[in-house]
Nucleic acid binder design. Sequence first.
DNA 1: TTGTAGGCGTTATCAT
DNA 2: ATGATAACGCCTACAA
Lengths: 344, 344
Amino acid sequence: MANEREVTIYDIARELNISATTVSRGLQDHPTISKKTKKKIFDLAERLGYRSNHFARSLRNQKTNTFGIIVPRLNSHFMSSVIAGIENAANEQGFSLLIAQSSESSEKEASSVRTMFDSRVDGLLVSLAVDTTDLSHFEHFFKKNIPVIFFDRVMQHENSVNILIDNRQAAYNATRHLIEQGCRRIMHITAPTLQNVYKDRLKGYKEALGEHKIKFREDYVVITNLSQEAGAEVANTILKMKTLPDGIFVSNDSCAVGCMLALKEQGIRIPEDIAFVGFNNDPVTKVIEPHLTTINYSGYEMGQVAARHLINHVRDVSFVSSTNTIILRSELMVRASSLKQGRK
Amino acid sequence: MANEREVTIYDIARELNISATTVSRGLQDHPTISKKTKKKIFDLAERLGYRSNHFARSLRNQKTNTFGIIVPRLNSHFMSSVIAGIENAANEQGFSLLIAQSSESSEKEASSVRTMFDSRVDGLLVSLAVDTTDLSHFEHFFKKNIPVIFFDRVMQHENSVNILIDNRQAAYNATRHLIEQGCRRIMHITAPTLQNVYKDRLKGYKEALGEHKIKFREDYVVITNLSQEAGAEVANTILKMKTLPDGIFVSNDSCAVGCMLALKEQGIRIPEDIAFVGFNNDPVTKVIEPHLTTINYSGYEMGQVAARHLINHVRDVSFVSSTNTIILRSELMVRASSLKQGRK
DNA sequence: TTGTAGGCGTTATCAT
DNA sequence: ATGATAACGCCTACAA
């Protein structure tokens, strides 16, 4: 039952009557070690089941080959896609991933940042909690010049890189599309506009309205947590309005779906009575009837880009990103939920 | 631009004119250190921004306070729920998580196991790749008595604990439900039966058929990768059959949904022509029309249970799990997709 | 081509 | 109540 002792380079050295240095070098395929010696080392290492001790190595090298990931929630289609993308790119290059979720709490986010710092991650990949309003809890990282990359939910900081889509433009496109379909009373369901993503989407929404001389109405903007349940609740509010809206742009698909389902249940026809546009291109958009028009952008790609960028940063000390912000492509996917005019 | 040097306990010791030992003890709230000294230590540590070095500590203690997670895919609703559950339970107890996905490849699984071993994780939480047929790649862990916990996709091993639901029973219930609805030609769409989950579900399916004197037909079992696309492909196969099935039990919701959508498009009525039961209670089940009957079990809970079990194992050396297998609850959620008789 | 020595930051042991 | 020392496993500057 007792644990076997670790097999170390010293064990190999002793058995082979050489020094630990030689073993260390041999294992790293160092050019100054003879082929013969290397072979002996590798063979014995294999036979003894030797495995390099990541911690000893990290301690010595001041490099951990590990990145930290902090996201608001792990269990959304978008976030898990991002993480899958990160994992793919990082693993390919031999980096491990330490992971934590902030559960949308700035406080928990800060505590995870501390843990990651203690773990001496080589870099951080972060999507901010909805209530995070400043980056002071990342100061330790900035001070030590450990790269921090924000994706999707970002904040500007001179020492960090942001990876995201053009939320303003996407929201503008979404809203203009609704207007082109003949909508004039267009609501916007979104999250607290502390975060760039929601602030920019609101901006794009307003811009499209303004451009078409549609008056912006404060009461047409509903702030929620964007859950499916929240969508259903908003539906109730809507049903109580004197005049129904004729179009809704929602900042997230599952919330849109929750709202659509609840409205349909009350006999509202989509898109005839109310047209819908969501955000994220969650698989559920192609399941709901009618299929939900949405903004498509790849979380997987965003994860890969973020990870690769971080790897460059870490690998090449002199690496300086030419820009502070990387904008990924997004596109409007037009589906039945917004096609008032029946054309396809 | 150069990194600041690490702040160590020596820096604190020097400034306070005490020994590093005392600082170390003070930081750990050791009882033999005076209140006054402790306060001085904490204050200075705070002021200097001291952060304990996880690696040095791990190296010294032979404990990392880190668990490894290896799952087939990160981006499914079920898996991300499990991981969220693990994160919740682990973080609560101060454990970090190293994460990797096998992408359903036994080979990549093995490589991740190696990485985790090198990182000296204190324990492993694993859901096996679909093509994993033996546990030889975990031998290093077993030999060193590092706990390995399998969940959902498990294999028996004397040195490990399995956490899962009673797949046979769940499949039996699902199939019997279809039979009770009057179905007689019941198909089963599932994944390769190398894995316990699919083997057991097939068993339960057969058992229910047998009990109701319905002959088992080999050609009614379709092996796929259970993706939504695969579901659509199976739909095509079905449409070519001389006699259509009148019920289908699918091993996973998204595949069921893919199949339903494709069939509906061809004018097949659900549940009148073909009744459906899925598996997992993915949110999409309540979006598709008609809503999909499914087997509900909580990934979040499974993750929590797995993590807590692992923590007990690690915390208490003498901890011996009374059983080798933990069965969690699952239940049939009856929805419209399987209600031929229109009763609700 | 190989070896020696010292140190990365922490903590347990044994003193004082 | 506090300190000196060694050790965890590895790597690198320097030496041979």
